[in-house]
């Protein structure tokens, strides 16, 4: 089966030269992404990990054509994303959605939860007002938001609730691919666990393909089938999650794995339920 996403030789360079450089005829560039290739199969979750500045978010943005790559190609379901005209791009954006890191900042502070979701449906021309209202209620139920929150504004919600709205927005038009860029980084650990569970449920229920970008290897280990490790704009290692994180081959991945603070002694119980010695 052909992969849903095929990225080949992706490069994103930014000019960093000063005027003096240009007068001397030099064009220095910063290589945010420097020759990245990978594929994502249908129904798969690919993790992209790396430290700040490794280029992982830039890859996500190039995937969705939020920015134009310097070189390389992104094929989505066989179609070249760079070559899409407006109509094709609109269809593509319906099928590929993004969940952002800052759940509060990603929402319009003046819109209620219902309006935030309705907006997405309107933009994509999904049905009349009544139909959309029904879909909004459906989406809220899907992501576990009680209907009483429909008239609240983001400010009146917790970070976890805002992220649920963000997820509902991404799912509103029934995408095939969801890119989650540090989707749980701003959340407290107990809320992060809820959101990770929600994403896992939704993925199973809706058959989503996901690209999961995170600096947190623990989170990536938990949710991803395969993982790509990025450093300085390149993928240094890619493979099945267990292979890469438990038996890293590259020195960089080894250093990254070794730096995860370990919970000494605490270990998963065979049932995968809580770890805890005595309480639960």
């Amino acid at each position: 089966m052909r992969p849903l996403v095929e990225v080949t030789g992706l490069e994103v360079h930014y000019p960093v030269g000063t005027l003096a450089d240009r007068l001397r005829g030099r064009r220095p560039v910063f290589k945010a992404v420097d020759g990245v290739s990978f594929t994502v199969a249908k129904g798969e979750t690919l993790g992209i990990v790396g430290e700040s500045g490794s280029g992982k978010s830039t890859v996500a943005r190039a995937l969705l054509r939020f920015l134009e790559p310097t070189a390389g190609s992104v094929l989505f379901d066989g179609a070249d994303v760079a070559g899409m005209d407006r109509a094709a791009l609109r269809g593509f954006r319906r099928r590929a959605q993004m969940i952002f890191q800052d759940p509060v900042g990603a929402l319009n502070p003046r819109h209620t939860v219902a309006a935030c979701l309705d907006e997405v449906l309107q933009v994509h021309g999904r049905g009349g007002p009544a139909e959309r209202a029904g879909r909004v209620a459906e989406l809220m139920a899907l992501v576990g938001l009680p209907p009483t929150l429909a008239d609240r504004r983001p400010r009146a919600l917790s970070g976890g609730q805002c992220q649920r709205v963000g997820i509902a927005r991404a799912l509103a038009v029934g995408p095939d691919l969801v890119i989650a860029d540090e989707a749980t980084a701003a959340l407290d650990v107990s809320i992060q666990a809820q959101i990770l569970n929600l994403l896992a449920d939704l993925k199973g229920e809706l058959g989503l393909t996901m690209v999961f970008i995170s600096h947190n290897l623990g989170v990536v280990r938990h949710v991803c089938d395969r993982v790509a490790v990025m450093n300085a704009g390149r993928i240094v290692e890619i493979g099945a999650t267990a292979d890469v994180l438990d038996r890293p081959r590259q020195p960089y991945t080894q250093a990254l794995v070794a730096a995860i603070p370990a919970m000494h002694g605490a270990a998963p119980s065979p049932t995968g339920a809580a770890i805890l010695g005595t309480v639960i």
Partner: peptide, 14 residues
């Protein structure tokens, strides 16, 4: 116990 249990690095993947 809940906090410790919420740590994804300790859970069984999947």
């Amino acid at each position: 116990a809940g906090l410790v249990g919420s740590q994804p690095e300790l859970a069984v993947p999947g």
